[in-house]
Design a protein around this nucleic acid. Structure first.
Length: 405
RNA sequence: GGGCAGGUACCCAAGCGGCCAAAGGGGACUGACUGUAAAUCAGUUGGCUACGCCUUCGGAGGUUCGAAUCCUUCCCUGCCCA
């Protein structure tokens, strides 16, 4: 088994590394590393997926992950517009979120050989004076101000809280180093400065050499932030983002992103990825299908991936409906009385408002059972039901199934 | 605490008494073209019981026939001073 660093580099996980040679040598033996996560949501999204994959690669090479949720730092994350009450509530919710996040992580990481920690456990009890005396004195304001990240913020204003964020994150690293022998912190490239601050702090206080590695901040070829779709973030949670839509998200990957994403978001061997990457023209769809299948399979399950794949093929190749398409049930009596298309599109969430549904119809983007709705006033009744269902479609790709009962 | 500049729709940003549901750009959506891609072109982009009505221009009052535009006050942001 080679060095993980090579694997990470080959697959495109590495943006910057402090002391590459030192880290390479350190990784020859099992190390403990950590990655921080924001616990303000109850699910990870595609943006986090990259870091989870990286952690999984690390663990597969014998290293021990610490997944750190920022329950403490999260409470000061965004100081503007938050009341005291709000923050207290958050503390309770964080606990629930952490449980949900743990379940998602377990799909990628053997949680028996990993640690899931919350920095609130040690940050909340910090005392100000000792902290200033022991930690604060190692930080140079001059140096912090010189950092690019802060210089940019100097234009728009930088609150004292934000300024302290770096100290707390550095302290996290120090804490984990002391308690668990953590010698590597990984994170998004925007965290580079904060991570290095931790590296410095540990060197000063402990005299130990620890490492930093950052991931590239992925954007799609069209410039959008990774993991964002029209309907918001692409969540890993099936409740918040159905496996079918999830699969579709990946199928719709930009041509130029396919190989890059295969490297990062799947465990497929590099040979196979390179082969898929050589596909050109319409054949690239095969690579996209593979990508979508693999990622869906990892995040949800092989069964869900099968279903999503079949549903996708059926809809876009044969025009058949499948169980995996998001669906809603409708009372047969209500349908018998007649229900306006407008209402239905709005109700199932295909449109955000009735006006939006009206526009959709006027622009010719509304379909029921693959027939274009021509009139804004169209009303559906029992006669429109085919094999117990109605199939709604908004535009080319957004489907919703209505089952009648 | 003082002075100055600001807070406009998803984001950026015009408007500075009526012609403003509010220019322009970005984004997004729909249509055409296509490979469920990109690029390109066209249209749309507050809500509704819809050729009309209602709610929006930081909050609350006020002036006026009429305000996003003027006045008062409060909140918030940035810069400068303390």
């Amino acid at each position: 088994m080679g060095n993980v660093l090579d694997v990470l580099q080959e697959r495109g996980f590495v943006e910057q590394v402090s002391d590459p040679e030192g880290l390479r040598q350190a990784l020859a033996k099992p190390v403990t590393f950590y990655i921080g996560y924001d616990p303000s949501a109850s699910s990870f999204h595609c943006g986090n997926l990259l870091t989870i994959m990286a952690a999984a690669h690390m663990q597969r090479h014998g290293h021990r992950p610490i997944l750190l949720v920022g329950g403490g730092t999260g409470m000061i994350g965004d100081p503007s517009g938050r009341s005291e009450m709000r923050q207290l509530l958050d503390e309770e919710r964080i606990a629930q979120n952490v449980a949900a996040l743990r379940a998602q992580l377990a799909r990628f990481i053997d949680m028996d050989r990993a640690l899931l920690l919350n920095n609130a456990d040690w940050l909340l009890e910090l005392r100000y004076i000792p902290f200033l005396r022991d930690i604060g004195r190692h930080f140079s304001v001059n140096r912090m101000l010189a950092a690019e990240a802060y210089r940019a913020r100097m234009e728009t204003g930088l609150s004292f809280i934000e300024f302290n964020y770096q100290l707390l994150q550095a302290y996290d690293y120090l804490y984990l180093h002391r308690q668990y022998g953590c010698t590597l912190q990984m994170g998004g490239n925007d965290q580079w400065g904060n991570i290095l601050a931790g590296v410095d702090l540990i060197r000063r206080i402990e005299g130990a050499e620890v490492y930093a590695l950052t991931f590239p901040l992925l954007t799609t070829a069209s410039g959008a932030k990774m993991g964002k779709s029209a309907s918001g973030a692409v969540w890993l949670d099936a409740e918040q983002y159905s496996p079918f839509d999830f699969y579709q998200y990946w199928i719709n990957t930009h041509d130029d992103d396919v190989e890059r994403f295969l490297r990062i978001y799947t465990f497929l061997p590099m040979d196979e990825i390179k082969e898929l990457g050589r596909l050109r023209g319409a054949d690239i769809r095969q690579a996209k299908a593979r990508l979508a299948y693999e990622v869906t399979s990892l995040v949800h399950s092989p069964a869900a991936a099968d279903q999503a794949r079949d549903a996708s093929l059926a809809l876009f190749a044969d025009g058949d409906v499948s169980d995996a398409v998001p669906s809603t049930t409708l009372d047969a009596r209500e349908l018998a009385e007649g229900i306006p298309v407008l209402t239905l599109f709005e109700r199932v969430g295909l449109c955000g408002s009735r006006s939006e549904a009206r526009r959709l119809i006027q622009q010719g983007g509304a379909y029921v059972n693959d027939e274009r709705i021509e009139s804004v006033d169209a009303v559906l009744s029992s006669e429109d039901v085919v094999t117990g269902e109605l199939l709604l479609r908004a535009g080319k790709k957004r489907y919703h199934r209505i089952t009648i009962e």
